[in-house]
Measured scan of single mutants.
Amino acid sequence: TYTFKVDNKDQAKKAAKWAKKLGLSFQIEKHGDTFKITVQ
């Protein structure tokens, strides 16, 4: 499981695209202005 934080929606979208490309499941949680992405 890999967790990282991004500062904006664009970065969150890029991370989601990357995870989908690799066939991984992911969750994006919004914490105020940051997004926490968990990829597994």
Rank of each mutant, 00 (worst) to 15 (best):
T1N: 09
T1S: 13
T1Y: 13
Y2M: 08
T3W: 13
T3S: 10
T3I: 11
T3A: 06
T3M: 07
F4A: 02
F4K: 02
F4Q: 01
F4I: 06
K5V: 15
K5Y: 15
D7T: 12
D7K: 14
N8L: 04
N8F: 04
N8V: 02
N8D: 07
K9E: 13
K9N: 06
D10T: 14
D10S: 14
D10K: 14
D10Y: 15
Q11D: 11
Q11P: 01
A12N: 01
A12P: 01
A12R: 04
A12H: 01
K13E: 10
K13G: 05
K13I: 12
K13A: 10
K13T: 08
K14E: 07
K14D: 05
K14A: 13
K14I: 09
K14M: 10
K14L: 10
A15W: 15
A15F: 15
A15I: 15
A15E: 02
A15S: 03
A16M: 12
A16D: 02
A16S: 06
A16L: 10
A16W: 10
A16F: 10
K17E: 11
K17I: 12
K17L: 12
W18H: 03
W18M: 05
W18E: 02
A19P: 00
A19D: 00
A19G: 02
A19I: 11
K20W: 08
K21R: 12
K21M: 11
K21T: 08
K21V: 06
L22G: 02
L22W: 09
L22D: 01
G23K: 06
G23H: 06
G23W: 02
G23R: 05
G23F: 04
L24T: 01
L24S: 02
S25R: 11
S25E: 09
S25F: 10
S25Q: 11
S25P: 07
S25T: 11
F26K: 00
F26G: 01
I28V: 09
I28W: 04
I28N: 01
I28A: 04
I28E: 02
E29M: 07
K30T: 07
K30I: 08
H31Y: 11
H31E: 15
H31W: 11
H31P: 01
G32V: 03
G32L: 05
G32A: 05
D33H: 08
D33K: 10
D33A: 09
T34N: 09
T34A: 13
F35Q: 01
K36N: 08
I37F: 08
I37H: 00
T38R: 05
T38Q: 05
T38V: 07
V39D: 00
V39L: 09
V39M: 06
Q40H: 12
Q40N: 11
Q40T: 13
Q40L: 11
Q40K: 12
